[in-house]
């Protein structure tokens, strides 16, 4: 499936990735993304119908023992928060 990166796709990706793209960035970005996707298309040459995907290179996914361990206290955990009040983080508004 041939992919063309146009203004519509950029708009969709802005929303998916939650990254605002300024108008001045758009032309360069479209050109770069088109070139990179073209480079990705190389793998289309292979017949992969009988190959299983390899998600992770080693067996993993072990669990640790369910025991308490030391963790950060609230002050430490919030030490990099710019806007906070009474030990809570102030986020953007959720209602208009």
């Amino acid at each position: 499936m041939k992919v063309i990166v146009d203004d519509n796709l950029i708009k969709r990706l802005e929303r998916l990735a939650l990254i605002e793209i300024k108008d001045v960035e758009k032309e360069d970005l479209k050109k770069d993304l088109n070139e990179i996707i073209e480079f990705f298309n190389k793998i289309d040459e292979l017949d992969l119908s009988k190959t299983e995907p390899l998600f992770h290179p080693i067996e993993s996914g072990k669990l640790r023992n369910n025991v308490e361990s030391p963790s950060l206290n609230r002050e430490e955990a919030l030490s990099n928060v710019k806007r906070k009040e009474n030990g809570y983080i102030i986020g953007p508004s959720t209602v208009e």
Binding site: L48, T51, F55, P57
Partner: peptide, 8 residues
């Protein structure tokens, strides 16, 4: 497909 190439 990329993960399949990884397997190969």
């Amino acid at each position: 497909r990329a993960l399949k190439v990884r397997r190969l």
